[in-house]
């Protein structure tokens, strides 16, 4: 027999390569950004709001690693502290929309009659409104700041989760194991919340991870057009907005750094979301 047996290195590599290098990098990026944002007050070299008019629009150097903005504020410190509002918003939106979406999707998927149809149509109508437009409406109604856009975004992102959940529930409830629970006489709420819901979490979680990236970009855009976080609070979107004047004057860096961070984080979160969804069998398109 010429079949060579037992090459343990290959077997080992199968497990360590379980996560692709790209996914590893994405996880690392997100972990670092989150950690830095959380500990920003301790880590930041300068007070992010300290104005130093003698040192405006400085290039990167030993004193200011990434340079300063038009008011002489340290860009690195503002980026680090800005991460807190920039990440907090999407986190709240994703948590809120996932929770609401799961509940509504479960209800819509489980009810055969008109309730399911009505909910399904309601999701479709919500889909028709772009998240940014809803947020601008909310700002017009409730005023500028972080609260109104977060509520609006949460509502705007509910249908993404709810539609997915509804579809999953409809296919799951037709499965023999769910029917076996019914024949065994278990009560519907117990089956739905205790048994079916946990089986949906991985798929819905993947969708929510993807949503996180979109929300981050949307909220940054809101801050950029001046409807989100208000000065002088540091926020990545707001930082880009504040740098518009400098940008026209030929100073690219104050806008470039926050833009770069937004892009990197959005891409990293998307990579993680895709990885999760690949792993659970590509149920998301």
């Amino acid at each position: 027999m010429t079949l060579s047996l037992s090459l343990p290195q290959q077997g080992l590599r199968r497990y360590t390569s379980a996560l692709s290098p790209l996914a590893w990098a994405a996880v690392l990026v997100v972990a670092v950004v989150v950690a830095v944002s959380v500990f920003a007050p301790a880590l930041a070299p300068y007070d992010p709001d300290y104005v130093d008019l003698n040192n405006v629009l400085a290039g990167p150097g030993a004193q200011h690693l990434l340079g300063t903005d038009a008011l002489g504020r340290d860009l690195l410190s503002r980026l680090m502290v800005g991460g807190r509002t920039s990440l907090l918003g999407p986190t709240l939106v994703v948590l809120g929309s996932t929770l609401l979406g799961l509940l509504l999707g479960l209800a819509a998927g489980w009810s055969d009659g008109w309730a399911g149809k009505v909910l399904g149509r309601a999701f479709d109508i919500l889909f028709a409104f772009p998240a940014l437009l809803v947020s601008m409406l909310a700002v017009a109604l409730f005023g500028k700041g972080l609260v109104a856009p977060i509520i609006a975004m949460t509502i705007a992102y509910v249908p993404y989760v709810a539609r997915l959940t509804q579809g999953l529930v409809v296919s799951e409830r037709a499965r023999p194991y769910v029917q076996a629970y019914r024949v065994l006489g278990f009560r519907t709420p117990w089956v739905v919340l205790g048994r079916v819901l946990p089986n949906l979490i991985p798929t819905v979680g993947a969708q929510s991870a993807l949503n996180f990236g979109y929300v981050l970009a949307d909220l940054a855009a809101l801050s950029f057009i001046g409807l989100g976080v208000q000065p002088p609070t540091s926020d990545w979107g707001a930082m880009i907005e504040e740098s518009r004047g400098a940008l026209l004057g030929g100073y690219v860096l104050p806008a470039f750094w926050p833009a770069l961070v937004v892009v990197v984080v959005v891409v990293a979160v998307n990579v993680i979301g895709e990885e999760i969804s690949d792993r659970i069998g590509g149920k998301l398109s």
Binding site: R175, P176, Y177, Q179, A180, R195, P198, N199
Partner: peptide
Amino acid sequence: FQDPYLSLDPR
């Protein structure tokens, strides 16, 4: 049921 792969809750 028929299908032993689907009739038990996988979790």
